[in-house]
Design a protein around this nucleic acid. Structure first.
Lengths: 233, 233
DNA sequence: GGTTGTGAATACATTCACAGCA
DNA sequence: TGCTGTGAATGTATTCACAACC
């Protein structure tokens, strides 16, 4: 059976077009779990670069991330040959490559739906824009919110989602509405051509296979945590 | 090589003591990925129960969660035999069992470290307490925050972490401090006997193997999302 | 010497397929 | 008949181990 959507968190191998910078145009398969690790490498490599480290071996990187050097080398080898034998990886070069592979070498426009407490925290979160994710529109159903300004953004009614998503060429939707509205908001975003959704609502969302879904759900994290803590308290 | 800590998100099989309600006292191994799915089952089953559904088959549940019925049956079979042939699973019974297995049939006390914008959003998040996770203390280094009250909680200085964690018997720490302070806060929590950490700081944290770590990092989610969206924009 | 990149080997997770039971 | 529970089979992911190279 094909399932088009990970059960909130996990999924397996998926076909992807091979990177363009490679001369071989045949498609390769990259495990989804590998793709999910690439941003972690990017994060650590950036920090190392900030600390003026220029070169790192898979062994040292594995030490920092608590993973095996072999896994790091294997992960990277899906995309190219970025290292030098006897030397390691040039951090700046590897970072540039990984950013291009992930598609984070450019800016991405997102809209936020839902401006309750959670939505306002999201719109004020300072971590998105330095990484190239810019929230350029915000929507809420509460009439009291309309036309209120949050930074450079003016809150719009949900009826304006269709028009604004197209007008501003938005490709990512961030969903922060109450659970009972979340699926219908997701449907609206999908209908209007959004291709990725970051969902904060505690539901098991549905979306077609061509839309990428990511869920942020701290309660699920806590609930799987306690399984391992039952001896502790 | 043994690695004691998942690289932020994912890990594999781990030894766990078998459930007590089973007569067999030998330890079984439950894949971590299975444990992470149990809360998802709990969530959907609760919603079904609210909708007055009493019984469900693995096929129907698989439909709702976009996973195979075999996977659901296999996952549950690690912990016991909860279904009836020809009938399906009694939702109330299965829920009770799953809650006990996960250790979420009781309350858990947590403390929050960091009361910036993110920390205040976390302390106001209404999703924790209905699930039995109660934030009973909050700490910040900013003198301006001390003794300010957030709901029933009074903000304390970080020096009071040790005393308060012990006095209030807190087992979970929620970390919402800036990246550069996060590892040292985690170390402090660990030293004071915290056994689970929910980390919101965008770092690759380190903790000993006996501490359960979960990371909430929307930027990582977005960065692996765009990999699949490069055709879209 | 040190380190990468990778086929082969191992370990793990999912799915199949069917016996067994209501 | 309809569905669970589960060994066996398949499909994936990780790790090993070593040739190739600096």
């Amino acid at each position: 059976m094909l399932y088009n959507q990970p059960a909130l968190l996990f999924l397996t191998t998926i076909k992807c077009p091979r990177m363009q910078n490679n001369n071989n145009p045949t498609p390769i398969e990259v495990p989804e779990v590998v793709v999910q690790r690439l941003p972690i490498y990017v994060r650590v490599l950036s920090q190392l670069l900030d600390s003026k480290v220029e070169v790192i071996s898979s062994h040292q990187l594995g030490e920092l991330l608590q993973m095996t050097p072999a896994q790091i080398r294997k992960d990277l080898s899906y995309f190219g040959r970025f290292g030098k034998q006897g030397h390691g990886y040039n951090i700046q070069f590897l970072l540039d490559e990984l950013r291009q592979i992930l598609g984070i070498d450019r800016a991405w426009k997102a809209c936020l739906v839902g401006l309750g407490r959670l939505g306002r925290a999201i719109i004020n979160y300072p971590g998105f824009s330095p990484e190239g994710f810019e929230i350029v529109a915000a929507f809420d159903n509460d009439v009291g919110q309309y036309n209120s300004r949050l930074g450079t953004i003016t809150v719009q009614s949900m009826e304006e989602i269709a028009r604004t998503v197209k007008a501003k060429d938005i490709s990512i939707g961030i969903v922060a509405v109450p659970s009972n509205q979340a699926q219908s908001v997701i449907d609206t975003l999908v209908e209007n051509g959004i291709s990725g959704i970051l969902n904060y609502a505690p539901i098991a969302p549905f979306a077609p296979a061509n839309v990428v879904m990511r869920n942020i759900d701290p309660v699920l994290s806590l609930q799987s945590m306690t399984f391992y803590m039952k001896g502790a308290q």
